[in-house]
Design a protein around this nucleic acid. Structure first.
Length: 161
DNA sequence: GCCAACGTTGGC
DNA sequence: GCCAACGTTGGC
């Protein structure tokens, strides 16, 4: 799976806005519009090749839909300078951009989503950020043991089909 | 639609 | 620097 030293992440997207199917169709996608400092800082730690759990938030049910990969490390999000964009930030300076983004590439769509409930029900995933109440962070690091476990759940479900 | 759990803004 | 008001996220 992951190469030694590769960091592991989870990124949330509302499937009504951008889903794993959209990413499969597009191949790669700039992850624009993150306007939270903590999430931005995590994106700045990402390196090309890092693996990411693609999480569907505000979905019925919410859960991990598949895997993607960091295709390009952090660079300035151009939408912050575009007055017509929803993500425009008048306070951001061109010579010192406030917001960053990464490009992600499609890796895999799970045959069946691993629901948030399934994550919460698994004792091996205790402590995984996304399972904690009130966790709103849209970009977050994932422990290797948790990442492997989510993949294992996804594969087990595939076998049962 | 409700609301808990934040994060941000701005008055003081 | 404090904190009230407000806005957003996201599960339920």
């Amino acid at each position: 799976m992951a190469k030694r030293g590769t960091k592991l992440w989870l990124m949330k997207s509302e499937p009504d806005v951008y889903s794993i199917d959209d990413l499969e169709r597009d191949g790669t996608e700039p992850w624009e519009g993150v306007r939270n400092y903590q999430a931005r800082n995590f994106m700045r730690e990402m390196a090309e090749g890092d693996l990411v759990l693609f999480y569907h938030s505000n979905a019925k049910p919410p859960g991990v839909a598949g895997i993607c990969r960091v295709h390009r490390a952090a660079y300035p999000d151009p939408t912050q300078f575009d007055p017509k964009s929803d993500y425009y930030d008048a306070k951001s300076k061109k010579d010192e951009p406030r917001w960053s983004m990464v490009d992600v590439g499609f890796v895999e769509k799970f045959a069946e989503e691993v629901s948030l409930q399934a994550l919460k029900d698994d004792p091996a995933l205790t402590g995984m950020r996304v399972t904690q109440k009130g966790s709103r962070l849209s970009v977050q690091p994932v422990d290797a043991k948790h990442f492997r476990r989510v993949l294992k759940i996804a594969k087990a479900k595939t076998k049962l089909r």
